[in-house]
Amino acid sequence: MAKESVKARDRKRRLLVQKYAAKRMALKAQGDYVSLDKLPKNASPVRLRNRCSMTGRGRGYIRRFGVSRLVFRKWASEGKLPGVRKASW
């Protein structure tokens, strides 16, 4: 499980990306890279990392469900994910 500080940093970055998204798009369209460079570094969507919404784990992320593989497996075993069941053959 990730530290609370890592999860908080991720949330803060996501808010900054949303806040500056329109401005970044306008500056890129104009080709004004000097002004684009003056925006905060964390406003760039490249700096985001997909993290599990429950644990904050950065690896083994399943995009469709928004959680890590560990949480996904737990939820699937408990039957909390509709339409998902363990394979058996």
Rank of each mutant, 00 (worst) to 15 (best):
C52V: 02
C52K: 02
C52S: 05
C52N: 04
C52I: 01
S53H: 03
S53M: 08
S53A: 11
S53Y: 02
M54E: 14
M54H: 12
M54Q: 11
M54L: 08
M54V: 13
M54I: 12
T55V: 04
T55R: 09
T55D: 12
T55A: 08
T55N: 10
T55C: 15
T55I: 11
G56A: 13
G56Y: 09
G56H: 09
R57F: 06
R57K: 14
R57L: 07
R57I: 08
R57D: 06
R57P: 01
G58E: 14
G58R: 13
G58S: 14
G58W: 04
G58L: 11
G58T: 10
G58Y: 05
R59Y: 08
R59L: 13
R59M: 12
R59G: 08
G60D: 10
G60N: 13
G60P: 10
G60K: 14
G60S: 09
G60Q: 09
G60V: 05
G60A: 07
Y61H: 14
Y61C: 06
Y61D: 04
Y61W: 15
I62E: 09
I62A: 09
R63P: 07
R63I: 10
R63T: 14
R63A: 15
R64Y: 05
R64K: 15
R64C: 07
R64D: 14
R64G: 06
F65G: 01
F65V: 15
F65Y: 15
F65I: 12
G66E: 12
G66D: 09
G66L: 09
V67I: 15
V67N: 02
V67C: 11
V67R: 06
V67D: 02
S68M: 01
S68F: 01
S68A: 05
S68L: 01
S68Y: 02
R69M: 09
R69C: 08
L70K: 13
L70H: 12
L70N: 14
V71Q: 13
V71R: 06
V71C: 10
V71F: 05
F72G: 02
F72S: 01
F72R: 06
F72Y: 15
F72N: 00
F72L: 07
R73I: 07
K74L: 09
K74C: 06
K74H: 11
W75H: 02
W75V: 00
W75L: 14
W75R: 09
W75A: 05
W75S: 01
A76S: 07
A76K: 12
A76I: 04
S77G: 14
S77I: 02
S77W: 03
S77L: 11
E78Q: 13
E78S: 04
E78C: 01
G79M: 08
G79E: 02
G79C: 03
G79W: 03
K80P: 00
K80I: 01
K80N: 04
K80S: 07
K80G: 00
K80T: 01
L81N: 03
L81A: 03
L81E: 05
L81M: 02
L81F: 06
P82V: 07
P82N: 06
P82M: 02
P82C: 00
